[in-house]
């Protein structure tokens, strides 16, 4: 669950960064820092999705 929360937080952070970069009057150093942070978040989000197709798992009485 925590991993998912981080993912959601990452997306929210990313949205804020995009907003800041496009609307805020950042210093050059500030915008480079923000940009790097955003690119790292995009990578993080992409990497944290387990891209393996899974079949529906049906629990049987043994498992339950």
């Amino acid at each position: 669950m925590d991993k998912k929360t981080t993912f959601e937080t990452s997306i929210e952070k990313l949205e804020k960064i995009v907003h800041d970069l496009t609307t805020e009057d950042l210093t050059l150093e500030g915008s480079i820092k923000t940009y790097k942070e955003g690119m790292a978040l995009v990578k993080h989000c992409n990497d944290s999705i387990d891209k393996i197709e899974k079949e529906l798992e049906i629990l049987t009485n043994k498992k339950v």
Binding site: I11, L14, E15, I17, V18, L21, T22, L26, L28, S31, I32, Y35, G38, M39, V42, C45, N46, I49
Partner: peptide, 26 residues
Amino acid sequence: YFNLQNNLNQFELTMRQAMYRQLDLK
């Protein structure tokens, strides 16, 4: 998932454009 992927790509593009614009402005 595809929507998210799309959004992430869009974020990346927007950030890149914003960065170029910032640099250009400066």
